[in-house]
Design a protein around this nucleic acid. Sequence first.
DNA 1: TAGATTGTTAATCGATTAACAATC
DNA 2: TAGATTGTTAATCGATTAACAATC
Lengths: 217, 217
Amino acid sequence: MSKNQKKISEKTIERLSAYRRYLKDLLKKGKDRVYSHELSQIVSGTAAQVRRDLMEVGCNGCSSKGYEISLLIEEISKLLDCSDKQNIALIGVGNLGRALLGYFSGSRDNFDIVAAFDSDPGKSGRIICGRRCYDMEQLPAMLGELKINTAILAVPAESAEKVAQTLIESGIKAILNFAPRHITTGSGVFIETLDMTSALEKAIYFSRKNTQQRKST
Amino acid sequence: MSKNQKKISEKTIERLSAYRRYLKDLLKKGKDRVYSHELSQIVSGTAAQVRRDLMEVGCNGCSSKGYEISLLIEEISKLLDCSDKQNIALIGVGNLGRALLGYFSGSRDNFDIVAAFDSDPGKSGRIICGRRCYDMEQLPAMLGELKINTAILAVPAESAEKVAQTLIESGIKAILNFAPRHITTGSGVFIETLDMTSALEKAIYFSRKNTQQRKST
DNA sequence: TAGATTGTTAATCGATTAACAATC
DNA sequence: TAGATTGTTAATCGATTAACAATC
């Protein structure tokens, strides 16, 4: 197994997540098989890329009949998900944080935001969007107690670095960072920054260079 | 000039946006010069990459004295910004939409969300987070009237494709898409999808493979 | 069988990094 | 001058795509 884990690229993992979501939709619509060229549209890639991605999860397609959707979902989930539902923490319950609580609620079977943290004492103890809000002081203790190893960072740019440091010291293993600040980590902590401002400025820039067809996730 | 426009890569544009924001911070703190190796930390890249990026905007560094911050900001802005402030539309005033209105308000000198649109008639006419909310029906007319060519899409997955189609038909040039759906466009419309669910699932996945040091924006 | 699709290797493409002469 | 940094080309790396035999 650890021999088989050839370290799959980030890009592939992102696409697998997108495939799976789409496959679940297809399943709901009553489809039961899918071709690589159909899946390729979902990530604006090529059919070859899809087949390559699926190879990595241990392919199970069938020549000229395509892939069986339910099997594919199962295999992708086996790769992406843990055996147990992952507990996630949200740090920063401002505008964005609350929106993320709403966005990531609903029926997810592989993860759940189980706690929110904010430095504003007025917020701790309250239930916000269905999740209990704790004071930042309680963060190290709660992460351990709730077995949280992934956190969503939605604090202002100024405090991002400091809060991230606290998270890392408390043993967090991955951070999805919405603050427009780079986070330094020597250790093996995975950090994904979604920089919404850069993304928007990029869109604005290319709105004027309306030339090429391009990729998106 | 159009000879000089060698088409700069998306990655470079994103980094330039990040550099600029950081440079503005440095300027506020009273610094006036910066080295490429300092800037490289902001995007967890190498100094060579920074110099390469800056080359593209028309470099103006000085051996062993680094780059003059104010000049750099000016040059980057000349590349990224239009002469006039860009008007942006937000489509979908749900939880996420409202958070984005909050997030992208405040003092930006290069863009502004000037209008919001929602299919819920209860929302049109109201002012939400300081922006007037219009009915979706009014979208084509308002885009022209307000000279909007970039839109932020924050509608549910189900309606994303249909709304995107309306946007494209109304002449939009770029879309920053938060809906977890790929948007197809044959034309020269730039589409950037920020898939928050895939990003989170990726973080969760790598929280278990806590091995490598890696890149982020 | 003929036609279409998969699995997988080889070729291509693009982006990042290393290297180093030129410069301050 | 000696030391450090820039600008830029060449080398490297990784990801995407093309191609095609094997298969249904």
